[in-house]
């Protein structure tokens, strides 16, 4: 049952990508897209997902949309403005360092979401993840602190709160 649901969700994703890439919705596209989606969904049902029930939870989708809006409008803009200031400043005030930042997320998807959120904002890049110690190693353009917990407050606290609600 759970495998069928997994396959259905992967098939939906595949079907959407197929139709968007094709750029038309004739009967031929819908039919071939359906077949491709079913085959791919069955093939990837045990690879892409482990708990499909989370995908059909509307509360998680609601938080995801809220997070996306907040992330792309507020967090991205602030980070861009900060880095632009540093670039245009005549003395180029950077203080780079690689800091250790702990995370408390459980699932792979949550960890990936946090890491991608950190990397996608200018100024911070996740360079390594250590799953045994449960830490990210993050290159930070302006290392305000080297303390792991304090760095987490600056960098990934907000991302992690949302990611845990969406994926954990």
């Amino acid at each position: 049952m759970s495998r069928a649901l997994n396959a259905f969700i992967v098939a939906c994703l595949t079907f959407i990508v197929y139709i968007v890439f094709t750029g038309s919705v004739s009967i031929y596209d819908l039919m071939t897209g359906f077949i491709v989606a079913v085959v791919t969904g069955v093939l990837f049902s045990n690879i892409a997902l482990s708990n499909a029930l989370k995908v059909i939870d509307p509360r998680r989708w609601y938080i995801l949309v809220r997070y996306a809006i907040r992330y792309f409008i507020i967090d991205e803009t602030l980070a861009h403005v900060d880095v632009i200031k540093r670039i245009l400043h005549p003395r180029v005030p950077v203080n780079p360092a690689i800091v250790k930042v702990p995370y408390y997320a459980e699932t792979d998807y949550a960890k990936t979401c946090i890491a991608c959120s950190i990397t996608n904002t200018p100024g911070t890049v996740v360079v390594e993840i250590d799953e045994n110690e449960r830490v990210f190693y993050i290159h930070w353009i302006d290392a305000k602190t080297l303390e792991p917990e304090k760095a987490r407050e600056f960098i990934s606290k907000v991302f992690e709160e949302y990611s845990k609600k969406i994926f954990d």
Binding site: V10, L13, T14, F15, V17, Y18, F21, G33, V36, A37, T40, G41, L43, F44, I47, A48, D108, Y109, K111, T112, A115, C116, V126, I129, E131
Partner: peptide
């Protein structure tokens, strides 16, 4: 694990394309 998770989602998309 980050690259692995992203690959899990993008592989079916690559096949669709």
């Amino acid at each position: 694990v980050i690259v692995k998770t992203v690959t899990k989602i993008t592989s079916p998309m690559i096949i669709a394309v």
